[in-house]
Amino acid sequence: MNNTDLDCLGLLCPLPVIKLAKLLPTIDIGDTITVLADDPAAATDIPAWCRLRSQELVTADAPRFVVRRLS
């Protein structure tokens, strides 16, 4: 399984979520993306995006969020 890093430090929401949404289809199902996002809104919005898009939030430890592609 592979991981891709996504550096969103300094970016304000919704940009981190937009970047995550665009990157997701480029990785294989089962692989992960590690997002670095320090906007306070990301702590709510990245987990909420995973729930809405039915993707797995592996860990959420701001500013580091690990998301696994499930579909």
Partner: peptide
């Protein structure tokens, strides 16, 4: 949404609910 507040923090209500705060 955070971008509409002077503090650039999202609503504490939306954050506590765990729902999307942008848009």
């Amino acid at each position: 949404s955070a971008c509409t507040s002077s503090t650039l923090r999202p609503s504490h209500v939306l954050a506590a609910m765990g729902v999307l705060t942008h848009g």
